[in-house]
Computed example of a mutant assay.
Amino acid sequence: MNQKEFAITITPDGRVEIHIQGYKGTAGCNSAAAMMEKIVGHIDSQRETSEAYEPEETVRIDQHH
């Protein structure tokens, strides 16, 4: 499983930039962006990286009794 990373930069003019890495697929990327929006407030713009277009990762857990 990939490591999830967030880099938050506050520019000299006060803009907040967030780089989210490690989420594959649009659903994962959008979920991470929504979480960050709750933390920093309104998001003015969003740009997807190549990870957003990769197949989403799924985790399967089998329980055997």
Rank of each mutant, 00 (worst) to 15 (best):
M1S: 11
M1K: 04
M1P: 03
N2G: 03
Q3W: 05
K4R: 15
K4N: 08
K4Q: 13
K4D: 04
E5L: 12
E5R: 13
E5K: 13
A7D: 13
I8C: 10
I8Y: 03
I10D: 02
I10L: 11
P12W: 04
P12C: 08
P12A: 11
D13V: 06
D13T: 14
D13A: 14
G14L: 05
R15Y: 11
R15H: 11
V16E: 02
E17Q: 13
E17P: 00
E17R: 15
E17A: 09
H19F: 12
H19C: 12
I20T: 01
I20V: 12
I20F: 00
Q21S: 15
Q21L: 10
G22T: 08
Y23D: 00
Y23I: 00
Y23P: 01
Y23L: 00
G25S: 07
T26Q: 10
T26M: 14
T26A: 11
T26V: 13
A27E: 15
G28D: 04
N30H: 11
S31Y: 02
A32P: 02
A33L: 05
A33V: 07
A34N: 13
A34G: 14
M35N: 07
M35W: 09
M36N: 00
E37K: 08
E37C: 04
K38R: 15
I39H: 10
I39A: 14
I39R: 10
I39E: 09
V40Y: 05
G41V: 06
G41S: 07
G41E: 05
H42I: 05
H42N: 11
H42W: 01
I43A: 07
I43Y: 06
I43F: 04
S45Y: 05
S45G: 06
Q46C: 04
R47S: 13
R47I: 10
R47T: 14
R47V: 14
S50H: 04
S50K: 07
A52C: 12
Y53A: 10
Y53R: 03
Y53K: 01
Y53P: 00
Y53S: 06
E54R: 05
P55C: 00
P55Q: 09
P55W: 02
E56N: 03
E56C: 03
E57P: 00
E57K: 06
T58Q: 09
T58F: 04
T58M: 08
V59R: 12
R60N: 09
R60Q: 08
R60T: 14
I61R: 04
I61S: 06
I61Q: 06
D62T: 15
Q63C: 10
H64W: 07
H64A: 10
H65Q: 08
H65N: 09
H65Y: 07
